[in-house]
Amino acid sequence: MADRRDMKVAVLSGKGGTGKTIVSVNLAAVAGTSVYIDCDVEEPNGHLFFKPVISSVEEVAVKIPVIDAAKCNGCRRCVDFCKFNALALIKNRPRVFAKMCHSCGGCMLLCPQKAISEQERTIGVIQRGTAGNVTVCTGELNIGEATGIPIIKRLLQLGAADVRCPVFIDCPPGSACTVMESIKDADYCLLVVEPTLFGIHNFRMVYELVRLFNKRCGVILNKCPAGGNPAEDFCVEHGITILSRIPFDHELGALSSEAKTAVWESERYRRQFALIYETLIQEVCHEAVAYS
């Protein structure tokens, strides 16, 4: 069972713009000492709210094959082996398409001529910093790169290496491999859902995903309208735990548009997110509720 002192909560949504970052940033900010990890490496934005003082920056590199033309005899084994189509045989010599390479190393192992070695290639950076009691880890994938997975892997290592405290993982949108990587080691998946058909459609997809991964999960209904909420109907229909409802709120939207962390700006939001945080702890850690 997860422990409130070091629980790992992944925040995801399927659709972008439903409020993953608002929820994860404010939960981390209200949790006291905590770690916030921005795994949305294609467009990280949590740091805009935290404005962390950066303490370290590291590059993330992957290994790609380099072919020694003098040793290669054009046998084509490497090209036929590569499932990612990162190699092509042109005029009897293999050519590497570095951005397609998934760094599996298979071509190097397979080459009968031992003509392939590996070379490092930088695909992005990780910044680590602090904002109040929150350790902020941000990954940023270089534009044009095929996959942010290596950055996410490293980010999660960095986050886990920290002092014992709750970790909030702000996941990328969608339900593809970067999301899977982000939730892999999470104790709990917090799904943020907005009341739109598109939002519910993509919520369904991540809901299927977290079930496939056997993750426990619960929902925060964001931007709740005054009337009926189709997202809530879906949760009720499928027996999905609803942890909280955040009303459609101009003030929260306005604070976000100015990149302000709501719980640091207003007592009302501090209380609101503190309550969500307490509910989350009970749900994640199954902490005993006092008997009455």
Binding site: K83, F84, N85, A86, A88, L89, I90, M100
Partner: peptide, 17 residues
Amino acid sequence: AATTPGGAGIRAAQIIT
């Protein structure tokens, strides 16, 4: 190449050559 997850263009061009 049509059904490969990625790099279909590279593989298709390989077929052409």
